[in-house]
Design a protein around this nucleic acid. Structure first.
Lengths: 329, 329
DNA sequence: CTGAAAGCGCTTACAG
DNA sequence: CTGAAAGCGCTTACAG
């Protein structure tokens, strides 16, 4: 491996000068600069990031901790984060927490041990504040998609409450009275807020709500499937379904097709989260479309803002989802 | 931040002894070991990975370079890699190359600059050997899903040729004579091999093949959509479609639904790649199911094997996909 | 403006 | 078996 010493020798300068040129120090005189750059070029020299990180405390990797890399929502967020990181010359240390707080804490420790420049996390629990240690250590953190109670941390979310209220309201206005709600884990912010939006839509119209139509799930395909099984077995089954994230939507569709029910004639369905293939489904799905990619980019932007100025004001950003009516309701 | 010095002071030993205990050096005497472990515990000490990497050349992160984090195939592979990495105490530096060789090379350089313990890559081109520099530098590398010509490197792939031959043969045996082939970029191994399998299935049966029914694409949803548009506008349109990866399948479905064609009565379709939601589609999709998760795990296993022994024999592993007939053909 | 030297937090030959 | 010291590849006050 060629090191800064090799470059210094080749250029006939000290390693200090090489370092200064590499860091864009304006004091270095043009001829010196030229010599260094030529040597760098000739030797195809690349700075060792590890040494730089150790000495200068500058890191070019940011940590991204999400619960599931196979969830298309997080995948799209991750893509937004990655593009923004790329534009800023950063890389991604990607970790999957699996909604496991133990694993989440482990990965947060690793971010510290790796001297990550910053961390983006979608935390597994609203009540358990796992990020406090890393915040205390002075690492810039931005929380995405979910909230952490009592932590002074930048947060980027979507307006779950209003958008669900609107979508469920739409179903009610179409005449549906029994709308099954396939929700998520109660400790997750988005699950809570979307459920609240569902309840509010009923309340807005003074329509009574049957608590038997509300199911929790693990926010995965299997959970959506199981919850839908239960809902459809109700003596007075729902005429419509609101599924609270993309994976539960797919699980619900699974069961609906298995039962051979016609959408939307026999059962209408609206899902939270658009998917690239929502229009490939038959019929095309009506959805509450989150600006997932933008969510990722915005989150990364807030992180870079804080990396540049650790003391900037703490922000909470709420992006607005869009309710897209297609043919499933 | 607490360092090894703090631990040494607290335990009343030298930093060398602390380091030895942390590295499991058996020479350290039990009382010393105990004192160190207690100090570590008391101070909640975590080793700085950056310093360790610089000095001992041991890294606990592996690089994963894939073309698209939003492609469910890669996402599942990544999950397999990640689980295996987690079990071995490693983390993932994730990079998206976007099939851009420039970006691919940049990320490979970064792996070097970051002293990654090893790299897993799905290269953007079979002909252009981008990995040679990093191989020369002695970094363990495993190539997944695709091949690199002339590089002595462990490779994990799927039997694209045979599985496509079988699936297309199935369509032919059902009586289809005009089967549209929605392929991928010609420089990508999987696209080439799957196309060869398609042609061979025709050849096997001595059935003539219409080259107009073969379309290339970018392996994305948009490409699948466009190719299907073209195919369906053929004067003598295909009665079946074979789509060569999951995203093109979704693009094709998009167009098929737009045109209101009934599957499989008016057009049959078989796609390469299973998807968690293939059964959520209507009708459930017949697919060539790759063992994606296993592909990721196997790849990571080969990498760890080589990390442990840099001189072990170079292997090429081919996993077998499974042809799953559901209701779309 | 440039260089010699110290130091980031570890590990590891080398003495003892 | 343990510790003092050198060193990994950088950066950066400090002199000059």
């Amino acid at each position: 491996m060629t090191t800064i010493k090799d470059v210094a020798k080749k250029a006939g300068v000290s390693t200090a000068t090489v370092s200064r040129v590499l860091n864009g120090d304006s004091r270095v005189t043009p001829p010196f600069r030229k010599a260094v750059l030529e040597a760098v070029e000739a030797l195809n020299y690349q700075r060792d990031r590890t040494a730089r990180r150790l000495r200068a405390k500058v890191s070019q990797t940011i940590g991204l901790i999400i619960s599931d890399i196979q969830n298309p929502f997080f995948t799209s967020v991750a893509r937004g984060v990655e593009d923004e990181a790329y534009n800023n010359g950063y890389n991604l240390l990607l970790c999957t927490s699996d909604e496991d707080l133990q694993k989440e804490r482990l990965y947060l420790d690793i971010m510290l041990a790796e001297s990550a420049a910053g961390v983006i996390i979608s935390p597994g629990s609203e009540q358990e504040n796992t990020i406090e240690p890393i915040l205390k250590a002075g690492v810039p953190v931005v929380v995405v998609d979910r909230r952490v109670e009592g932590a002074a941390v930048d947060t980027v979310m979507v307006d779950n409450f209003e958008s669900t209220r609107q979508a469920v309201g739409h179903l009610l206005d179409l005449g549906h009275r029994r709308i099954g709600f396939v929700g998520g884990p109660p400790q997750v912010t988005t699950a809570r807020e979307r459920r609240a939006g569902y309840e509010r839509a009923y309340c807005d119209r003074g329509i009574e709500l049957d608590p038997d139509l509300i199911k929790a799930s693990n926010f995965k395909l299997t959970g959506g499937y199981t919850a839908t099984c239960e809902l459809l077995e109700n003596d007075d089954p729902p005429t419509a379904l609101f599924t609270a994230n993309c994976l539960t939507t797919l699980g619900a569709l699974n069961r609906i097709h298995e039962r051979g029910l016609a959408i939307p004639q026999e059962i209408a369905i609206v899902g939270f989260d658009d998917m690239p293939w929502a229009t490939s489904l038959n019929p095309p799905l009506s959805v509450v479309a989150q600006p997932t990619y933008e969510l990722g980019r915005k989150t990364a932007q807030l992180l870079f803002r804080r990396i540049k100025d650790r003391n900037c004001d703490v922000m909470e950003v709420r992006l607005k989802p869009r309710f897209i009516v297609r043919d499933s309701c």
